[in-house]
């Protein structure tokens, strides 16, 4: 992916770094923290329990080994925040560098089915972008299937703008620093 695509000019100051604690719309106390190594197994369990119908563009992968291999890449190379309900991982958002310039990162977010539509996705985005901003991330981009309106709405609400609408997936990006 290139780093020279157009950027949105939104003010990114409003994001707050993790940790964040809040009550979700179901009354559960949720804490969002940057992922530490102790949290890896619980995160892998979240993906093992993930509904295959909520997979998108081939991720998360299925099967214990593939999930762990995929997560290791995200943990080794990326910035990760996790929403915790006690010791249970309820959601995860990640920024993975392109490799080109160290400034441009691909974003993805996953919320476990029973925690969806409870306000966790928006908070995860806020914490991840705050975390990314604090770590010098300049540009964030993602691709999303155009029929996935819940995700597209979330990204637009945060300030992402569509930068390429010519293929199956929409490409959206956001200028962070």
């Amino acid at each position: 992916m290139t780093g020279d695509r157009p950027h949105s000019d939104e003010q990114a100051d409003r994001f707050s770094e993790p940790p964040q604690t809040f009550e979700d719309r179901e009354g559960r106390e949720i804490t969002i923290r940057a992922l530490d190594p102790d949290g890896f197994d619980a995160l892998a369990e979240m993906y093992a329990a993930f509904d295959p119908a909520d997979r998108a563009q081939g991720i998360p992968p299925t099967g214990e080994d593939r999930i762990e291999g995929w997560l290791e890449t995200l943990v080794d190379e990326g910035l990760n925040v996790v929403a915790w309900d006690g010791d249970r991982a309820a959601g995860h958002a990640t920024l993975v560098p392109d490799g080109d310039d160290g400034e441009s990162y691909e974003l993805a977010i996953f919320v476990l089915q029973e925690y969806q539509e409870s306000g966790i996705g928006g908070r995860l985005m806020d914490a991840l972008l705050g975390y990314g901003r604090g770590n010098g991330v300049e540009n964030v981009w993602l691709t999303v299937e155009r029929w996935n309106t819940a995700a597209v709405n979330l990204y637009e609400k945060v300030g992402f703008e569509t930068t390429n609408a010519e293929s199956f997936e929409l490409e959206m990006s956001f200028r962070l620093n």
Partner: peptide, 17 residues
């Protein structure tokens, strides 16, 4: 067809599409 992004997402190229 189907290259993977840094994240591991499958992306189909324009010829494939």
């Amino acid at each position: 067809g189907g290259q993977r992004s840094p994240m591991g997402k499958i992306q189909l190229g324009s010829i494939t599409e």
